[in-house]
């Protein structure tokens, strides 16, 4: 088998597997949004502050998902493993 084809195929698989990390970010953002909704239900007058806190918290929870996305993009478009052959 052509070794380059093997590396490219395995890189595509790896990019797909790396995106499994998106599950964690999704669960974290869901918990944050659910708690923010119940906080607005309890205290509707604090909606602006809650929304601001929710957005910052969701952005921080997202970063692990973004790291895996960077790995996937690297594997697909700027593959460092091809150069090692």
């Amino acid at each position: 088998m052509d070794p380059k084809a093997f590396v490219l195929g395995m890189s595509a698989l790896g990019a797909g597997i790396a995106m499994v990390a998106g599950i964690g970010a999704g669960i974290g953002q869901g918990i944050a949004a659910g708690n923010a909704a119940s906080a607005v239900g309890r205290q509707p007058e604090a909606q602006g502050d809650i929304l601001k806190t929710l957005l910052v918290g969701a952005a921080v929870a997202e970063s692990t998902g973004i790291y895996s996305l960077i790995i996937a993009i690297l594997l697909l478009f700027a593959n460092p493993l091809i150069g090692l052959l």
Partner: peptide, 16 residues
Amino acid sequence: VSMGFRHFGNIMAGMV
């Protein structure tokens, strides 16, 4: 690092 990657990753993922 995480701030830069976050902004880049979101816009880049949309583009891809």
